[in-house]
């Protein structure tokens, strides 16, 4: 039995001799718990090859999936948030912004770019959930607004990829009014008969759902994304009962009539270019 007994306490291997494990060589799917090599997972557009679980990804990843040769031009890249209310909770809003900017190397929770999808022009506004939960403050509203101006000027269709916890509390009513701002601006796009495709990804909730995300000429969901106005925890507290399985998931939202389609990430580009051509011809 002494085989299994540790004779001397502690780890005696010197630091030099230790073999390092490189970071992130493997991806463990949070849904099916199966393991995939990270590079394979990335090549598969961050979709689990075993269970099709769509991992949350950022704007850079979406742009790579959508645009020809990963080529695109960023619009208004130099906009960042002010702190009009001098907001402070457990942390100063300015510090929170600075930390997020450092951590994510992004300016705010959305990037707007113009590029080509199988040769078709498209402007894409894509939210980044890593930046304060993809929350919508003045920058998100302004960037969408200016992206729409760009679409109007050059007659290019718009796609907004939503991924957000909702309005950003630290900008209070300014955030709230971004709902009205983006929706009002979308009326101009509609008037000009320029297509607007809304892609709702995991998660799309709160003020984002209650404004531009639900206003697409086409509302498209990624498989199993949470799409809600009030989040599941709030609904559960309100009704005091457990929620039905699949509640507020893309499939559920489609069944209730609020999505046109659910598109697998691997088919996104091909379906998108198909749609763009259909709108055009």
């Amino acid at each position: 039995m002494s085989w299994y007994k540790r004779i001397t306490k502690g780890i005696k291997t010197s630091t030099k001799e230790k073999k390092g494990t490189p970071e992130g060589l493997w991806y463990k799917c949070p849904s099916c718990k199966k393991i995939t090599p990270s590079n394979e997972h990335a090549d598969g557009m961050y979709v689990c090859p075993h269970c099709d679980y769509h991992e949350r990804i950022g704007s850079a990843e979406y742009f790579k999936i959508i645009f020809d040769n990963n080529e695109y031009a960023e619009l208004n890249p130099n906009l960042s948030a002010g702190d009009p209310l001098n907001f402070e909770d457990t942390k100063k809003y300015t510090d929170r912004l600075a930390d997020s900017q450092k951590k994510t190397e992004l300016k705010d929770a959305i990037r707007t770019v113009a590029g080509k999808v199988d040769g078709n022009d498209l402007v894409v506004a894509c939210m980044d959930f890593n930046f304060i939960g993809g929350s919508m403050g003045s920058v998100v509203g302004e960037k969408i607004s200016r992206a729409i101006d760009f679409c109007l000027k050059y007659n290019i269709p718009l796609m907004i990829i939503s991924k957000s916890g909702g309005a950003r509390m630290m900008e209070a009513a300014y955030s709230l009014m971004q709902m009205a701002k983006t929706s009002a601006k979308l009326t101009l796009l509609a008037e000009a008969r320029i297509p607007y495709i809304s892609l709702l990804t995991d998660p799309t909730t709160g003020g984002v759902t209650a404004s531009f995300a639900m206003l697409g000429d086409l509302n498209i969901g990624e498989p199993e994304s949470l799409i809600a106005f009030a989040g599941p925890r709030v609904v559960k507290e309100t009704i005091g009962k457990d929620l039905p399985k699949g509640f507020q998931r893309a499939e559920f939202v489609l069944e209730h009539g609020f999505l046109d389609k659910i598109i697998h990430r691997k088919d996104l580009k091909i379906k998108l270019s198909q749609l763009l051509v259909m709108f055009k011809n």
Partner: peptide, 9 residues
């Protein structure tokens, strides 16, 4: 409504 918001450029 479109003029609402504070951003830094």
């Amino acid at each position: 409504f479109c003029s609402m918001g504070v951003v830094v450029e």
